[in-house]
């Protein structure tokens, strides 16, 4: 097998979104970013995200956001109310974490920007991996829930 060159974090992405946001970068310039700059940058990032992210990835992102919300909710319940059926809490929480990282993996793999890193993993394959991982995850969580 040919040795794989270590791929650096995608630089091309910078230039891609960079063209759209040179103005924002120019404003902040050499001085430290002010609040106005920061909000401008964030607004710009959001705009770029909305415009340039494929819809499928947005779906995955929405799912990930949902999982984060559920995870935080569970954790808050555990801290504030009770952790009594600890098995149940743990399996519930780990399933959100597990599902989150699996979704993140799917997102990373399916992202066309990263295709250079995943020469053997097509988006379809990534989805199959996601389903496989989720099945195992749910099996273990269900077994653990008592």
């Amino acid at each position: 097998m040919a040795p794989k060159k270590q791929v650096k974090p995608p630089k091309s992405v910078v230039s891609k979104s960079g063209t759209a946001s040179t103005s924002a970068g120019g404003v902040s310039g050499s001085s430290s970013p002010t609040v106005a700059d920061t909000s401008a940058i964030i607004a710009d990032v959001v705009k770029t995200y909305v415009r340039e992210t494929p819809r499928k990835l947005k779906l995955v992102d929405a799912f990930m956001g949902f999982l984060v919300a559920v995870g935080v909710l569970q954790f808050a319940y555990c801290v504030v109310v009770t952790s009594y059926p600890f098995n149940a809490f743990l399996s519930g929480f780990s399933i959100t974490v597990g599902q989150f990282v699996l979704a993140a993996s799917l997102r990373v793999q399916a992202n066309p920007e990263n295709s250079s890193q995943f020469d053997k993993v097509s988006p379809e394959r990534a989805f199959a991996d996601f389903v496989f991982g989720s099945l195992i995850l749910h099996f273990f969580a269900y077994n653990f829930i008592n």
């Binding site: 910078v14 040179t22 430290s32 970013p33 990032v45």
Partner: peptide, 13 residues
């Protein structure tokens, strides 16, 4: 961080 860094223009940011 890697994901965000790629999308944030400013160096300071």
């Amino acid at each position: 961080a890697v994901y965000v860094r790629a999308r944030v223009p400013s160096k300071q940011f």
